[in-house]
Design a protein around this nucleic acid. Structure first.
Lengths: 159, 159
DNA sequence: CTTATTTTGCAACCACGTTTCATTTTATCA
DNA sequence: TGATAAAATGAAACGTGGTTGCAAAATAAG
């Protein structure tokens, strides 16, 4: 689908409406199909997603390209790694506090042992440590494992 | 090396002295070479170790056997997974509070971004949460990233 | 010392992370 | 709009790690 096939009016509308393109432009990233698709998934879901989540959501695109897309996003400060205690690497959209090399992620991550989703818990604050037994603290992560509210309801109603 | 080649007095001494064999017996596990070796590494280092750490430390034994050894130890409550924010799975010796299926790990884990080691921080306590926005909390993990005291000293003296 | 049970080591498979390189696509500028 | 430089893609290929099944070996029990 080439953009030249669309009337100009529509093009301008799209440019105005698309937060995805704004994000790409703001981080000086070229606009490509997979980047837009990936960003759309990040914007739709508010949770942390793994590469395999994305592969499924996007109908199994080239996995190397997807891999590099995520790494590029991470480098440019669009996403950060969300540590959720699983061995699976997940990413979440950065908030405005993230820059290219310093990511801030001042909230806990809740990992649901039922559905496997990882949600960001904005309300939980992390202990602010500076040094522990000679260990210089640079960042802290709090992982909360349990059952998310959706799964909790589902279990309650089905039983 | 068959034990029958040693005098009986020595045998008794060994039995009395070996915490490794006590651990195995306490968890009704058979005494095998690799299990003793792995436990020795766990007892010597006080940090969390990954499978590849163990492979290196033990001179690359059969990796499947090692893999199953760790899983067995985990099932029997000898070790627990130590979440340190890396994608690499690590294990640490359980304290007395661990049973077969319920592991307690009430301390933070410090991950050194310099040497990659993961140490247990007994002094840092985790926030006790019960429910956050409908999320039922079952366990919490605190990961502290930074520079461990050894690396801190090493950097300070070398520069 | 024999036997039943457990553990080991091997083969084999799949998922994932990662790099290299030729080809394609994008943004830029005339 | 069309040519061009730079960037991104897709294929191939490799390494590591996790996992299972099965026959051989080792262990604990009698």
């Amino acid at each position: 689908m080439r953009s030249s096939e669309k009337p100009e009016v529509l093009l301008h509308l799209e440019e105005m409406l698309s937060p995805v393109r704004q994000l790409l432009k703001a981080h000086s990233l070229r606009r490509t199909a997979i980047r837009e698709q990936v960003l759309n998934v990040f914007l739709q879901r508010k949770e942390a997603v793994s590469q395999s989540d994305l592969e499924q959501a996007l109908g199994h695109p080239d996995r190397i390209t997807l891999y590099r897309t995520l790494r590029t996003f991470e480098e440019k400060g669009l996403v950060h790694r969300a540590i959720d205690g699983t061995d699976k690497l997940k990413f979440a959209l950065c908030s405005s506090g993230c820059s290219h090399h310093k990511h801030q992620d001042q909230h806990a991550h809740g990992h649901c042992e039922h559905c496997g989703r990882t949600i960001c818990m904005e309300g939980v604050w992390l202990p602010e440590l500076q040094s522990v037994d000679g260990f210089q603290v640079k960042s802290t992560f709090l992982i909360v494992q349990g059952v998310c509210s959706d799964c909790g309801k589902r279990i309650a109603t089905k039983k």
